[in-house]
Design a protein around this nucleic acid. Structure first.
Lengths: 260, 260
DNA sequence: CAGTGGTCTAGACCACGTG
DNA sequence: ACGTGGTCTAGACCACTGC
């Protein structure tokens, strides 16, 4: 029986009580199961890329029918926290997949050609969080943040200049060396090395004139219109974990979006 | 029995054959039901804002279980073609709801205050479709399109200059007078008066410098960076029904987007 | 072949809106 | 009280994956 073999780590209560502990809250069963699954994801019971237990096992663990577990997982798959693979199982979503990158990197070349993107990191330092960032990241005045500046290339062409502010506590070991060595998407690094999984972001886009510094890096004339993207990223429980400001050159490139 | 009372208009076959007609195609039952529902929506069997038959009635009509109909409707609700309302029924989505407007008007004031938006129509004429538009709207060379130019105000402030190209055939009676009289979202007009329901759009965003004409209308200096939004809208079956190019002033306003 | 998610069914009961 | 969608269950069978 899988029941006895799968106690939730950190849960001292027998299985039956894992459910009893939340069933006092009035809400549909499958939503309670959803919360339990998110909590398990959050505490790292299953790591990004790994499979979660089968629907049958989870049904046994939570003492509900398989159909109820299925509905909970359906929701989480729709929210991109989990990925179903027929015949194989259900997996924790990860940023180390082309699929996730496509969702969060919205700048693309006009001709639609796939181009290799590479990062050049220009700066990485710990600073006292600016007042605005304190508010956006739910920090306390005086808290530290890690500030990163990077230039994103499509092929040989510099296209996006990113400035990032990350909570100092969660990103303690993030250094310029670490960034320079790393290959792959930044969110993949955050997820693997810092246990911080970004799942959602809110953006505000504007057109702005290039200031001299940015213009030089992006290889455009000062004053050139650039696409400015202000992003706040969130992890489980809608906790903000990153503030990012991007400046993108949009001659030959564009920001793609689907309204549905 | 509702079976006999609900023949699909335009379907001469008895009910059983409505399903048999498609069941030759191999695909899950609920997807076939989905297609049948979309086809019914497309031919206007139920109009925007109206309720569709209950799940029980549809199950009887298509000779499947209620659970299968439910799954088909779940999908269509997720795609925003239908709207479920507990206790009341399931309704055909319409652009005459604040909800739909929020989905397709992504420019918003920075302070988050709700502001009344009004349109001023500057132009409306039939022209021969430009070559690019021919391709985007799947027309034939020489086909006519209706060209519309309008200025969108937030309160007293002109914020977005829109240029629209619509297929001439479907929008035959669209005139400047018609537009001037109308109150409400453009897509609402298209849906109600021209039987063309927009359900999805693809956009490409860029930063561009304001040309003198646009600058004057938007009350900014020539050369000011503007947000340019190129949109192609689609109706049922992914048929393109509108090309739109917007130029937005982004001082005090922004384009909001959620990545999830 | 066994195990996984995917589909389909049938039936019970609940929550909500309306008369 | 009735009809709607919403939840939950139980069980059967299918489709895909990997051993």
């Amino acid at each position: 029986m899988t029941l006895a073999t799968m106690p939730a780590p950190g849960e001292r209560l027998p299985i039956g009580d894992e459910r009893a502990a939340v069933s006092a809250v009035f809400s549909p069963l499958y939503q309670q199961i959803k919360s339990l699954l998110v909590a398990a994801l959050e505490r790292g019971e299953w790591k990004p890329g790994e499979p979660i237990p089968s629907e049958q096992d989870l049904a046994a663990r939570f003492q509900v029918s398989q159909g109820t577990v299925r509905k909970a997982i359906d929701d989480l798959a729709a929210e991109n926290l989990l990925v179903r693979r027929q015949g194989k199982g259900t997996f924790v979503a990860t940023h180390h997949e082309p699929r996730a990158q496509h969702r969060f990197l919205r700048i693309a070349p006009d001709d639609g050609e796939e181009r290799a993107t590479t990062s050049r990191f220009l700066e990485c330092k710990r600073i006292k969080a600016p007042a605005e960032t304190v508010a956006q990241l739910d920090l306390r005045a005086g808290d530290a943040v890690v500030y990163v500046r990077r230039l994103l290339f499509f092929g040989e062409r510099p296209v996006v200049l990113d400035d990032l502010w990350l909570p100092g506590a969660a990103f303690k070991g993030l250094t310029a060396e670490r960034l320079a060595e790393y290959r792959g998407p930044l969110y993949g690094l955050f997820e693997t090395e810092f246990g911080t999984r970004m799942i959602r972001a809110e953006e505000r886009l504007r057109a702005v004139a290039a200031v001299p510094g940015a213009a030089a890096l992006l290889n455009v004339a000062p004053g050139t219109p650039l696409l400015q993207i202000e992003r706040v990223s969130y992890t489980y429980g809608d906790r903000p974990v990153e503030v990012r400001r991007a400046l993108g050159a949009t001659d030959g490139f564009h920001y793609r979006n689907t309204l549905a």
